[in-house]
Amino acid sequence: MTDHIAGILDELGGGHARPMAAAFLANTVMPWISAETSPQVRQQMLAAAADLVYLTGWMAMYERAHGLGQQYFVQALGLADDARDHVTYCRTLRGMALQASNLGYGTKALELADSAAEAAPSAGPRLVAFLRGQQAHGAAMVKDRRQAFARLRETEDALSRADGRNDAVGGYDRTAYEFHVSHVLAELGDLPGSIQAMQRSNRARPAAERQGRVHANGILATRQWQLGHIEAACATWDTFLNDYAALSTARGDEHFAALRAHVKAQPGTRAVRQLGERVQAIATQKAAA
């Protein structure tokens, strides 16, 4: 069920997937983990529940419901600890680090990322890459350039040693690595480099990851616009709109608001005018829905 909800998240957005996850947790998972069973089955049930609670917290964070996301993350930590599920425990700490970075708390983001890495001393290479990438972002947020690039090197090395299997929940791949590179470079003032890394991330992204692509293109277009590459930004925003029109996502809404502000601030060129017409059409469509 967790994998199924993760697929719905990618295809339709958190606005559709998170209510399903919350209902399944309340109506099915909670009664199951309270049932009488053997210690082995109970441990497996707690581990499965921790994974779903982590995903639900991640979706709440992504939908800008940060207080709710924190509650889910704390619950996931407790379940993973009871289940002795070190992988989900570390993933959840990493999710909390990502939330702190989204809110602009660089020191806390690095602290949580370091805690996640310390809790996984015997982790496999893909999880190591997952954790080191977040440490790199946290280090860049506190302007520790040396540590940030050292962590990125460790991330790339670990990813090169990972096997071909990537988890649907909490996985890490080339797309995620380049996404981290982009954030590190942006935090350290290299806007052109961050744009190139985000473009590499998008090229590596699986076609089914619509929600992730919406977020990445929103960031990419904003940075292109900031650099003065208006034509390129318009093309990226146009791709963003292809996915955004079919999604229910608060993070996408946030990027859409930034897009409308861009169009309003600089309406002069033909590309911007055409983009503005499409923005208005999609705004009308979303309001009607």
Rank of each mutant, 00 (worst) to 15 (best):
T107F: 06
N102R: 06
R94Y: 10
E111H: 15
A119C: 05
A123Q: 08
K108C: 08
L103Y: 05
G104P: 00
K108P: 01
A117P: 05
R94T: 03
P121N: 13
D114I: 05
A109C: 04
E118M: 01
S115V: 02
E111A: 15
N102C: 02
Y105S: 09
A97G: 14
G106K: 11
R94L: 09
L110G: 07
K108Q: 15
A119R: 05
G104A: 01
G95R: 01
A97E: 06
K108H: 13
S115C: 02
Y105V: 02
S122P: 04
K108L: 15
A100L: 03
L103M: 14
D114H: 04
S122V: 15
L98D: 04
K108F: 13
Y105R: 12
G106H: 05
E118V: 00
M96P: 07
A119F: 00
A100V: 11
R94F: 12
S115R: 07
A117S: 08
L112N: 07
E118R: 00
A120T: 08
Y105D: 15
G95F: 05
T107N: 03
M96I: 04
A97R: 11
T107M: 08
G106A: 12
L110Q: 11
A97H: 09
M96V: 03
G106Q: 02
S101G: 01
A123P: 04
T107I: 01
E118Q: 03
P121G: 08
G106R: 10
A109F: 06
A119K: 00
L112D: 12
Y105T: 10
L98G: 11
A117F: 13
L103R: 15
A97D: 03
Q99E: 05
T107L: 12
L98K: 02
N102K: 02
L110E: 07
G95E: 02
Q99W: 00
G95H: 02
A113D: 04
A113V: 01
N102A: 05
D114P: 00
A97T: 06
G106C: 04
Q99F: 02
E118C: 00
R94W: 12
L112F: 13
M96T: 13
L103E: 10
L112I: 09
S122N: 15
L112E: 14
G106E: 02
A97Q: 10
Q99C: 04
L112K: 05
S115G: 00
A97L: 04
E111L: 12
A116P: 04
L112Q: 13
A120K: 04
A100M: 08
A109Y: 08
A113E: 09
N102M: 06
Q99P: 03
Q99R: 11
L103A: 06
D114N: 10
N102L: 06
